[in-house]
Design a protein around this nucleic acid. Structure first.
Lengths: 346, 346
DNA sequence: TGTTAGCACTCTCAGGCGCAGAGTGCTAAA
DNA sequence: TTTAGCACTCTGCGCCTGAGAGTGCTAACA
């Protein structure tokens, strides 16, 4: 259904109510708008407009004689059409850059730091999804002997990520042989995306085609096991306790349902993962996220580019009543900064 | 001060009250004890005994005419002298073993799994501190070239732990040279505890003594940087949302202060870390943990042995009103199991 | 026709009151 | 030493009430 077009006054009133409600967390009365926003209208007129907006589904009444509160639909209109894109202040931009600068340049550290930055600056929950390794390109593979039955495969990805995988080998491989296998694997597989390497490892024909006369049982085993990482994406969460300061989460059950979701990392990963991979911002308002227990939360998310075709996601989870322009600008700037950070390090 | 010795009746009454309060979370009345525990005494007599126990500081009154609640001191006596050591049921022992068996045998996985097991079986918060690497013995070091300015140092510890460290090298090292350094470092440093390696790396005289004529600027740099890991111990926490089901945490502020502590991993690490390294159980009751915001929580902790002189800690954090015998048996069995697990894998 | 002032109406919220219930402490008897 | 009985105390709940906030409606006004 096409959203009806609102006239200028309705726009202005809706915007004022969203703005006011975001600040106070209390239903907004017509009086309040007259006092705080210079609209040149009386309370009575505002009440008429507010009644119209309510009929359109953009506002609601907690009870007969309370002020108005924006509905999810109201927030939707606000986010899509009303709010003005705000730029992060120089001070805040600098804050983010400083935080990155002071951290080690190692992959995990950047991920962790990002979730901390997001939560610190937004005062909400900061979430970071590490990129799916599937698309990631293997820079180099190193095999290290642990004992007679195990070797450690160290996967150096082009993005700078490092993954360790213990591989149990059936036959006792000599150091010389291991070194030889290592060399062949690098020769044949380095530079390929993990996705492709996995396809190769699963298909005997492809294995034969790639390794040719070098193909041997140990190579098959190592190729199959070294690249089969269990935990594909890691979830970094910070700032959960920020939720306690929001008055709408004053009752335990409301915060409980949220925390039960946050404890399940897979669920958070689903919540954040973006379908189309672009640097564009996405805003999910309230129950739009489709997650039970998170009806009162909104999510602002964006993907970031790590390397080539490889994307991760960052996001902020806050109450539906959040300062959208500000949070959007934070997520946008951070995803850009982190993308640049990975660009540099290549 | 020596704790006064309690006669048999006082013991029995205190134990009954602790037991009853742990089940109901409500002040225990004399009536309740008459009904639920067959002590062969009337309510009036129990009231006298309870008044005595209160005077001794083991019980308290929320208000004049409510039932009794154990004080921290009361719990202390209960834990130290009254409670009978309970053994984990066969079914629960099997549950724990199964969970370990189904997980990969990799170090991180074991740590993570342990915190999950602890919380799942205790219904409280499970915490695991990875062992301090300081005491850990270097099994092998592998240097991998990333680009002209960086190498990756892979530290294989004797415990099975693997640590990666990116080292920036000032001079462009050839592959041959890197290989040579790698060989020398392994020759000289493998088998030594990290602690000792760090002492060597900081002291030019010791460096000279160890490496002799092989000592070169690149070796000094790599030795200094590769072993200077930032994050010594990792903290694994699971089951935080279990706290929502406890009636004493029905108000947000109480749960808030707890969660604010839990978000600070360093603080949790301090809370858990055990001074004397032994497999003995330690119980901290209520404010004994000395942590602001955790006055209503008790901690049951124990260290586990990973390898040689190297210890980590596991623990359960729950409300002061927890089933101590059960939790103690859980922590005890888990720490033994995890120690055996590492024993085997060597 | 759109805007505004006025007013009656509605609903919340905080405080006060009273009452039932639970549990104690004390006293006196067994 | 134990127990029965009883007065006393404190909580928790429901109820009521009054103040306050905010609306919707109506009638007057530009």
């Amino acid at each position: 259904m096409p959203t009806p077009v609102l006239d200028a006054r309705k726009h202005a009133v809706l915007e004022a109510i969203v703005h006011c409600y975001n600040r106070t967390a209390e239903p907004v009365s017509s009086q309040k708008i007259v006092r705080d926003y210079d609209m040149g209208l009386s309370a009575a007129t505002l009440r008429n407009t507010m009644a119209d907006l309510e009929e359109l589904g953009y506002l609601m009444h907690p009870y007969t004689s309370a002020g108005r509160v924006p509905t999810e639909q109201g927030y939707r209109v606000y986010v899509d059409r009303l709010m003005t894109n705000q730029k992060l202040s120089q001070r805040e931009q600098q804050f983010i850059r400083d935080r990155y600068a002071s951290s080690r340049r190692d992959f995990e550290e950047i991920m962790e730091q990002t979730s901390k930055i997001l939560s610190a600056i937004s005062h909400h929950i900061g979430v970071v999804l590490s990129p799916e390794l599937h698309e990631s390109i293997l820079h180099r593979l190193e095999l290290i002997s642990i004992d007679s039955e195990h070797i450690l495969a160290v996967l150096l990805m082009a993005s700078g990520a490092v993954k360790n995988q213990v591989v149990s080998i059936p036959k006792n491989l000599s150091d010389v042989e291991l070194y030889r296998i290592n060399r062949i694997l690098n020769e044949k597989l380095a530079g390929l995306p993990l996705k492709q390497i996995r396809q190769i490892s699963r298909d005997p024909l492809k294995l034969k085609a790639v390794f040719d006369q070098h193909l041997s049982p140990p190579i098959t085993v190592v190729t199959q096991k070294a690249f089969a990482l269990e935990q594909e994406t890691h979830v970094y969460i910070d700032g959960t306790s920020n939720f306690f300061s929001h008055p709408e989460f004053g009752e335990v059950q409301k915060i409980e349902s949220l925390f039960r979701v946050l404890e399940q990392k897979e669920q958070v990963a689903d919540l954040l993962s973006v379908r189309q991979k672009s640097l564009g911002i996405q805003v999910l308002i309230g129950s739009e996220n489709g997650c039970e227990g998170m009806e009162m939360c909104s999510i602002v998310r964006s993907s970031y580019r790590v390397h080539g075709n490889q994307f991760g996601t960052i996001g902020v989870i806050g109450p539906t009543r959040m300062a959208y322009p500000r949070i959007v600008s934070i997520v946008k700037f951070t995803s850009q900064t982190i993308s640049e950070l990975f660009e540099e390090s290549l």
